[in-house]
Design a protein around this nucleic acid. Structure first.
Lengths: 334, 334
DNA sequence: CTGAAAGCGCTTACAG
DNA sequence: CTGAAAGCGCTTACAG
């Protein structure tokens, strides 16, 4: 089963490669090629099992029908669901996706971006890390099609698709307050990711609107690398130093998972005394010992919007710097 | 920042493209190129910011430095963790991975395999679906590098990396019996995936070894597509028809999740009466209301072994049809 | 309506 | 030790 090329067809039929190429690319009408000839070409192509060589075409046209997806960690459910949504949506355009995980390390994400560009992806979908500013600036300068997902930089113009972190966070905390909680602790990451900052600001605003003072001893920031240890430490400090805490709000599901793990391991499970909430959840949250309020991120829509943006850019239909924001869904417990 | 090509360097330096190519590919010594000349080339390449065009090279050499990963569903934690393991491991060889989800549909997986081959991936890592036999046979015939993961076909030779489904399943059920359970129900998928069949056989063997009779009313098989509804139905039938059931064993974590959801929604949570076990788990299983015994699949090792196999094949170091089997880890509750 | 030819940026057999 | 040249399989401006 040796490779069939354009020239095999052209030779067998005694026509030029040009003609065959036009026909195979569906440009027969446009190029006003004789119907009979076009049919013959198509038939012969089928007979020989011709399939255009992807690499040759990609090299010539500069289009690879592939996009690159750079995110923090494909094994994290948020990202794997996002990846799936992107896969499904972009398949509609005949595209595939090549992916890489940065672990929130901008050295890694920078390398991934470069490699994917080398591999001539037609566009990039990126969940940028804090240090990715320069990479984004570079993409802007090169006018390389890309869209940021889940995070962006206020000071750098970009196409991006975001979740309403601020609004969702506000609602969750506001609900805690409305259900009578007085001392609401907050555990977040100690990085300057805009999505995490916005969640903090939502927390602040909910306090303010309800006439609560911010108590800095109630706010803990843990590092991404040492998340297990530091979350445990944060829980311990919160509960020991401040025994009046009656609610803990986790900035994401991983933190919530670890926090709940701590509580269960330490037999702290009186939900009347201590209520829990999390910015986003896992499927299993409703099945746990510790009931918890949580937000539901519109992950599928996030992927759809990202693909929409990148495909518009690839087809030159979109101006740059479009900021999209999707609302959160909430599962609240009183 | 226009593209710098080989010939740019060769022109500037007055040497041939051949020479530049050799130097850039680290074959200077081998080709016994003058050290001075080689250094000059390297310096000029650096000065100009030369980077070999990936597509041109790939077209010429037929190597894309990319592998294709075909699995059931990237958003399923098992597969997303596997994807991550593969990503990490293959990065060590300078490779990237392009992925696609088949949803256990062999039409989809067949298409993915074809597309990835079109895109000239150097190898494929595949979690095959039941209907993929012909696709695998075709790959065998073409001698295309691939390795099966998590499933394989007994009647078709292949390189594959498996988990010890039979042994792990045996241990789990044996543990239930040893802890005094008399009527152990089993919920599985109704498909002929070898991994699921092996889990069933492990269940059978544990019964047999302990002198239990197989009671067919205790075994339920649900479909992949209608999993939620059918798992609920299975749970209902099991518990109503057979009130003496004192243990339910789920063939995978998704089934366990749904089964537990059913139990919680129906307030059935007396673990003394009804014990639970699952072939594989989720991180959160220890945190749930319903305690459950579960196996822990060596996912990371699965990815590492798969990459090992595929890279050996790509580098022509491995004969075909190597069957690897990795042991399960268990988290058992009495 | 159709074709000869150039070119994308590499690699490599061949020649000296 | 080095180079001229062919070729991978396409696409497309140009010419008629």
């Amino acid at each position: 089963m040796k490779k069939v090329s354009l020239s095999d067809i052209s030779k067998e039929l005694g026509v030029s490669k040009t003609l065959v190429s036009f026909v195979m690319n569906g440009r027969a009408k446009e190029k006003r090629i004789n119907d009979e000839v076009a049919k013959k070409v198509l038939a012969k192509a089928k007979e020989l099992g011709y399939k255009a060589d992807y690499l040759a075409r990609a090299m010539r046209t500069g289009k690879s029908q592939t996009i690159g997806l750079v995110m923090a960690d494909i094994s994290n459910p948020f990202f794997s669901k996002l990846a799936r949504s992107i896969e499904n949506e972009i398949a509609k355009f005949g595209y595939n996706v090549i992916f890489g995980s940065s672990d929130e390390d901008h050295i890694k994400s920078g390398k991934l971006i470069e490699v994917f560009k080398d591999k001539k992806v037609d566009g990039l979908i990126i969940c940028p890390t804090v240090g990715d500013k320069n990479h984004i600036k570079k993409l802007n300068k090169e006018k390389y099609p890309y869209v940021l997902v889940d995070r962006y930089f206020k000071e750098i113009p970009s196409n991006n698709v975001m979740v309403d972190n601020y609004g969702g966070s506000f609602e969750i905390v506001d609900n805690q307050i409305k259900s009578g909680r007085k001392k609401i602790a907050f555990i977040n990451f100690n990085v300057e990711l805009i999505n995490m900052m916005d969640r903090f600001h939502g927390y602040l605003e909910a306090l303010k609107v309800n006439g609560y003072e911010l108590d800095n001893t109630l706010v803990k920031n843990v590092s991404f690398k040492d998340i297990e240890k530091e979350t445990y430490e944060a829980m311990e400090e919160l509960l020991n130093v401040n025994p009046k805490i009656d609610s803990i709000y986790f900035a994401n599901n991983r933190l919530a998972f670890l926090g709940i793990k701590y509580l269960i391991e330490n037999n702290i499970n009186d939900l009347k005394k201590l209520q829990l909430s999390s910015f986003d959840g896992f499927d299993f949250m409703p099945l746990m010992q510790m009931h918890i309020s949580y937000g539901i991120q519109p992950i599928e829509q996030l992927g759809i919007s990202a693909v929409d943006s990148i495909m518009k850019q690839i087809n030159n239909k979109e101006e740059s710097s479009k900021h999209a924001m999707l609302p959160m869904d909430l599962s609240l417990i009183n």
